[in-house]
């Protein structure tokens, strides 16, 4: 039965439109003035609700980029309804390319393969970046990143090394620091979950996965340009506030995993402000779909298809 994953994907896409835009405007977190290695005045303010409008990873600023979708819309952008990874991407080692190819064949057969999102599992880094919304809570000794998928969150310890022995977890062990206007997060120790993939195409990872995130604010014009560039790869689903003229947020991340990739590669995700006014609960286990206004319903209200007899 393939209905459940389809509903979950529908819910995922609905989340782009239905979620955030909290009233917490650019106000720094309380107590930001102590114990940071960088002075408070120069620490960038990442507060507020951010939304990126596309489903997948955006193009890199330079160099090798992520696995891309082979299926394209007439516009040339990725067809998010049919995810078939380009297994010929030179970043992939042969074994990894074979994995991506097999997942693509499942998609092409009309089925949806299980992934951490549609199986309602915690999402590993960097898979978790698909979340359309993110909020960064900056404190003196840590940054907490909140995502809508099952109210997930990551805690990044600032100005600390990784422990000598990392206990693997799906979010991995994340430490960070500020470099001028940029928050740099280094993540290792990502657990090999039941559906170990770093993107929507099923690209695998090993325990050697190493992800470096770099968050920085972009001016309005640069944000607009970056969003337009991203939209050429993934069509816009989420509703960015069209009236917002402030700064945007860009995540550039680099992925290394010698067990899977022939070389490090990078990608970007550019965030604007969400056009909606609240951070909605996204409960994956509710198995809901969305209505035409992109609202969620509990199961009793969901428009589940019914059948009086089997199809075969």
């Amino acid at each position: 039965m393939n209905l459940r994953p389809q509903f979950l994907l529908a819910m995922t896409l609905a989340g782009a439109v239905a979620t955030p835009a909290l009233a917490q405007t650019a106000a720094p977190s309380v107590g930001l003035s102590s114990s940071t290695e960088q002075s408070t005045a120069s620490i960038p303010d990442f507060s507020g609700l951010w939304l990126h409008p596309g489903l997948g990873f955006g193009p890199p600023l330079s160099g090798p980029g992520p696995v891309r979708n082979k299926t394209r819309l007439p516009s040339g952008a990725s067809d998010f309804r049919l995810v078939v990874g380009d297994y010929t991407n030179p970043i992939l080692k042969p074994e990894a390319a074979e994995v991506v190819k097999k997942f693509g064949e499942i998609s092409l057969s009309g089925r949806i393969f299980p992934d951490p999102d549609n199986m309602c599992l915690q999402n590993p880094v960097p898979y978790i970046f698909w979340n359309f919304n993110v909020q960064l809570l900056q404190q003196p000794d840590k940054v907490t990143l909140i995502y809508p998928h099952d109210s997930d969150f990551r805690v990044v310890r600032l100005n600390q090394p990784h422990p000598a022995t990392v206990i693997p977890s799906l979010h991995g062990d994340s430490v960070g620091h500020y470099e001028g206007d940029t928050l740099v997060i280094d993540t290792v120790g990502v657990k090999l979950g039941p559906y170990r993939m770093i993107d929507r195409f099923g690209t695998p990872y090993t325990q050697a996965l190493h992800v470096i995130e770099r968050y920085r604010l972009l001016d309005y014009e640069a944000t607009k340009e970056a969003l337009e560039r991203a939209e050429k790869e993934w069509p816009r689903i989420g509703a960015i506030d069209p009236n917002y003229r402030g700064k945007g947020l860009q995540l550039e991340f680099t992925v290394e995993d010698p067990g899977v990739f022939t070389m490090p590669w990078s990608a970007t995700i550019t965030y604007g402000r969400n056009a909606n006014q609240s951070w909605d609960e996204r409960v994956c286990a509710e198995n809901v779909e969305h209505d035409y206004q992109y609202n969620y319903f509990s199961e009793k209200d969901a428009h589940l298809p019914t059948a009086n007899k089997p199809d075969f």
């Binding site: 009233a23 977190s29 309380v30 907490t144 909140i146 969150f153």
Partner: peptide
Amino acid sequence: EIVVTAKTTYVLTGNVEPNRRIYTDGR
């Protein structure tokens, strides 16, 4: 985990429970 900011206090619960947002911005 409780994260206090000027306009919102967040109570992060984990384990699929939703995070609490306690708005203190006078809304």
